[in-house]
Every structure is written in C-alpha cells, then in structure tokens.
Design a binder for these strands. Structure first.
Lengths: 130, 130
DNA sequence: GTTCATGCAAATCGTTTGCACAATG
DNA sequence: CATTGTGCAAACGATTTGCATGAAC
C-alpha cells in the first residue's frame, strides 16, 4: 500500500512553479526565495524547499542532481563515463571512448565554446538485474 | 604570483591514495575514513577531507562533482542536455536530440541494463567568450 | 473539522576551519 | 627551525524537520 497524499492549492507553490517555468536559468532554492520574498515578505526558506520537493514529486519540475549528496573520489583521472545503478547506487566506470564529436554538435546549438563533457548512464547493475 | 605550496610526505595521505587506487568503487570521504580508522584509530574525518582535497590539487584523484553544491531546479522536464559555463557558472539547456544509441553502446561494455543517460557540456558561454 | 500548508527555529548532515601540538625535511 | 600535517572541536552552509498556527476542502 503506497502512502496516499493529497495536494491542496497553495498560492506560494503556484508562484514558485510560475517562477520556474518563466525562467531559463536553473534556479537554486535561495534564488526562488529571494524572488518570492518580495511578494510574500513572511515567506520562509524552509517552505520554499518543501514546495520545491512537492513539485518534483508531482513531476512538474526536475531536480538536477548528479550522484547524490556526497562527494565521490576517483583515482581514475582519465576522462571516462560513469554508470550509476538506480537500485543500489553503485558507480561503475564505463570503458568506452569519449564521443568528442558531441562537443562540436552541441557547440552549434548556441553561441558557446565547449571544452569537454561528462556523461552518466543510469539503469541496473549486474547484481541488481538478478 | 601564485601561492607556492610544498607537500610533505604523510603516511595517512599515502594510504588514502592507495585505498582509492585499489578500489573500483567511487568512495566517499566517510568510506575512506571508516577503512583507515582500523589502521589509524585516532584518524579524524577532517583530516581525511583535507588529504582528499590535497590529492585532488595534486591531480592524483578526481572529485566527481556536478553543478556545485546547490540543488538546481528546472521546469523543463523533458530530457535534455546541459551546458555549464566554467567561468560564470550559468547553466543553459542544450537543444539537441538525445543520443539514445549511446545507451546501447555503453550497455555492451558491462553486464548492465541502461535506461537513460545525462550529459553536461563544459566551456564558456557567449557572455564570457567576449 | 480533518488534513495539508506555513513560519519559525532548531536540528541534521556533509564539509571546512581554527587552534595547539606533532611530524617532516 | 620553518613549515606542513594532525586531532579535536567548533563553525559553516545547504537542506530538513518538529511544532503550533492558519488555510483549503
């Protein structure tokens, strides 16, 4: 039995979503907080976090994180891609050549100069496949 | 004039590096700490962090971080790649198709099943190019 | 009126730092 | 002996949570 959860309407959450859909930045919680404090002077940062997480739950926004909240250290200093198991969280180096053409391809989509890229694959590792 | 810095030999740092080169995991600081505490019961976590950062400075290990220490929220929930400016830190969505063949290519390098991938390009944005 | 949303402050968690002492070169 | 490394504890910064009150349905 999944926990049931109902969402009520909230002006603050509504405005947070509007702020996010209205910008091409990738805002942090504090940015949202600073913007919205002008309209709701009593707004609390904790509530911004709560609503951002609810919007993620609802699938209305995405949280761009990477490998979780821990720093990870790697003695393999050569450029390489990573695989992250969605079930157990283990991280594996992927032994395939770097696709440098992607840098050129991506450069052409905007007025930017690209030096390198990082890539992470997500799925299930051998252990978790069984 | 860059600040000069000399590194002395330290058994703890030596062992931290050995631990990292001897594993294919991508350890966190606490993992290293727990391993090494068996050998050095008085070891402090703060010192582990200090040494990990020194090893990164020396280019002997890598710190796999992503977009800095802040969570970033994005109302664009469609899969897309990101560009991150190395100078100003701004994040831009990259408007190019997802390279799904890469999932197959990467799957073949190990016994894993891949559902999707993320990619981040790094370089200079239009503002910082000038 | 039951449940969810809010503000506030305190708590939590990963990481960094100040300090006094020990080890290195 | 000048400088770096260490342990310890406190500080830090981003995020979460407990609690009492207010709003939604």
């Amino acid at each position: 039995m999944g926990k049931k959860r109902t969402y009520r309407h909230s002006k603050q959450r509504q405005r947070i979503l509007e702020l996010l859909t209205g910008t091409d930045k990738h805002p942090t919680a504090i940015w949202v907080y600073d913007q919205l404090r002008k309209e709701y002077p009593s707004l609390s940062l904790g509530n911004v976090y709560r609503n951002l997480n609810i919007l993620v739950e609802q699938g209305l926004i995405k949280n761009s994180d990477f490998m979780g909240s821990f720093e990870r250290f790697d003695a393999n200093v050569n450029p390489h891609y990573h695989f992250i198991c969605e079930n157990c969280g283990s991280i594996v180096d992927i032994d395939m050549p770097i696709e440098n053409e992607l840098n050129d391809k991506a450069s052409k989509t905007a007025d930017i100069s690209i030096r390198y890229h990082k890539m992470q694959f997500y799925g299930l590792c051998s252990k978790c496949l069984k």
